[in-house]
Every structure is written in C-alpha cells, then in structure tokens.
Design a protein around this nucleic acid. Structure first.
Lengths: 167, 167
DNA sequence: GATTAGTGTGTTATGTTATAACATGTAATG
DNA sequence: CATTACATGTTATAACATAACACACTAATC
C-alpha cells in the first residue's frame, strides 16, 4: 500500500509554471513574430490565441468556438479551424491528437518536435521540449526518412494522481 | 539537383516485408494468444483482424465496416469500434492517430510502445518497434510519470518519394 | 478611379469519425 | 431455471472537421 498525499517526488513537468509571466510573454512573442514575418495578428487570431493561453490547457475546437461566440465573434466551425490551422502552421499552437484538442505552445522558439505528457486522471497536459524529452533523437532505423512533423504523446498517470490512488 | 529514381539508399523500414509469412504468422499468433488468455476469437473478431492484416495498411473504421458488410456481417459503427477497441487492448491492432485509422500490429510480442513512420506522399506506414526506434528511452524529465500508452508518429517523406520529387 | 489579386472573415451545408443507450442471443454457473 | 457474463445487433445522436461559396478590405497596377 502506498502513502496518501505525501507527493514527495512529483513530476516537475506539471508544475513550476508562472502563468502570469507566461501569458504576457506569449502575447509579446506572437506579436513580435507576426510583425517580423509581416503577418496580420487580427482581432480574431489574437482572441483565439488568448483563449488558448488563458488557462493553458487543451481545448476542443467547439469549446473555442463557444468562447469566440461569447466574445462577439462568429462561431461557425470553419472560423476556429482556419485560425487554429494558421496558428499551428506558425508554431504557436499544437494539436493534441489523443484529445482532439488544441493547446498553446509553451515555447514557440524551441519546440519543433514537442512531446506531450497527458495524465488520464487529472487531464493535465505538459509540453516537454525536444531538448529535454530525450525522445526525439534520430533513430538509426529512420535516418532515411525526412521527418517533417511529429506527434509524440505519452498518456498515463502523473505522480500526484498516482499518490492519490490508494487502492 | 538530385538523381531521379536511383533510390540507392532507401529506408529499410518500408521494405523487406514477407507478407505471405506475416499473414500466416499473425493469425497463428492471435489464435495462440486468445487460447492462452481464454478469450474468444469469434468470427467477427477474426474477420476484422484478417481485414487489417490482409493488405497491412491503415484502414478507417468505416472502410472496415464496408468490408464487414460485404462479408455478411453487420456494418453499423459500434460493431467495428468495439472489436477494434478489443483488439487494441490486447495489442493486435494500433490506432494511427494522424490518419484516424487502424492498423494490424507488426509484432504483438514486442511492441508495447511502437513508433509509426508515415509518408505523406505515398501514404505508406511503417511500424518500428521500441527497441529499434530509439525513441522510447525514458526521459529524465518524465521519470515521475507512469506511461501507460504512447502515441509516437513521425510524418514526412520517405526516401523513395523524395528521390522521385525532381523539382 | 477602375481593375485585379491577395487576404481574412462569414455562412450554409455536409462529410467524417465516434459513442450512448438499449435490445437480443447464447453459453456457463450456481 | 434464474443469474451472470459476454458478444453482437440496432437506432439514434454526438463530436469533430471540411467544402464551397460570398463578401469585405487592402494594396498594387493600369
């Protein structure tokens, strides 16, 4: 049997996130990037990004649409999907395949090939950059394949939730 | 500029597959496993597995349903999804998230955490076992997370297709 | 200043993927 | 034979995603 609630050794990847700073930084980063690339950070695009960065968790397209609607934008599906595709293309949003959901990128500068770590119980999702994950080393078996895009998602249970499971 | 069609150095992962043997082996393996685990390899389950192993490429649930229908089985969606879930649970089928499709496992004995390599041009999909991919090394960042399931998919372009692209 | 091309958003309709809820059948067990 | 466990069948609907077309705005060009 395990001790309950001690949580003496939890995964750091789910913690230590100063979201106030993150939010501001993220907005600044996207603004700078758009200026530099001469792209339009329109109210709609900005709003979608803000929605995603707001609580920084994966949201389904239709959840985003609801929020857009409440903010006075159109809420027909193509609106969300188009903007999401655009933001994904430029690295500010990722799709979490296992959840059919979208999440703001934690670090657009670094993570070309991020790993997502998903707790199936508390449903928290952490993004681990390729430098840190150790998961994206090129494989000898795959050296002749030109990787353009990766989907790397690890689903399981985080230490906090595991410690809480007494059974 | 690249030479066309020489293909002197192609990814082995997409080749060297003796499918006649594979098919027979796969059926034998699943039969043995089901007997050993006292599970029922019913006509429906067998048929779904055969459909998937037949040309050994990813099939959508509704493609499988069509084939089931033509083989005289019911073809309402839950039929396929239930059997697929069951086969996935026991490691004989994987879902390729990037394609919303299902594929027979290349090696049910070995691949708990397989990597799928997907050519976006010829749409071939190769399964690389965790031993060979080098992608599933436990990461220091993730050591406190209990991984139950992985989705690892590399999308890009295989050497055959790349050599064929002349532009 | 009309014309054109490019871009961003809006709208309608529809396509695709997946599941909930309930019904039926069958075999093994007490 | 009542109970259960399991497998399959059926209807309806939910959830996710895109096609096709319309319109507005800007900037560049004639």
């Amino acid at each position: 049997m395990k001790k309950k609630k001690k949580n003496e050794n939890s995964s750091k990847i789910f913690e230590g996130h100063d979201h106030g700073a993150c939010f501001g930084d993220a907005i600044t980063q996207i603004e700078d990037y758009f200026i530099q690339k001469k792209l339009q950070l329109t109210p709609l695009r900005r709003k979608v990004f803000e929605i995603l960065i707001e609580d920084h968790k994966p949201l389904g397209a239709y959840e985003i649409l609801d929020k857009l609607g409440k903010a006075g934008f159109s809420s027909s599906p193509p609106i969300a999907y188009r903007v999401l595709d655009f933001l994904i293309e430029h690295g500010f949003v990722h799709k979490v395949q296992g959840l059919n959901a979208f999440i703001a990128c934690s670090n657009p500068k670094h993570s070309h090939f991020p790993t997502f770590v998903i707790c199936r119980k508390c449903e928290k999702v952490a993004e681990v950059s390729e430098e840190k994950s150790g998961l994206n080393l090129p494989s000898p078996e795959i050296t002749n394949f030109k990787i353009e895009k990766t989907t790397i998602e690890l689903t399981g249970i985080c230490s906090t939730c595991e410690n809480a499971e007494i059974r």
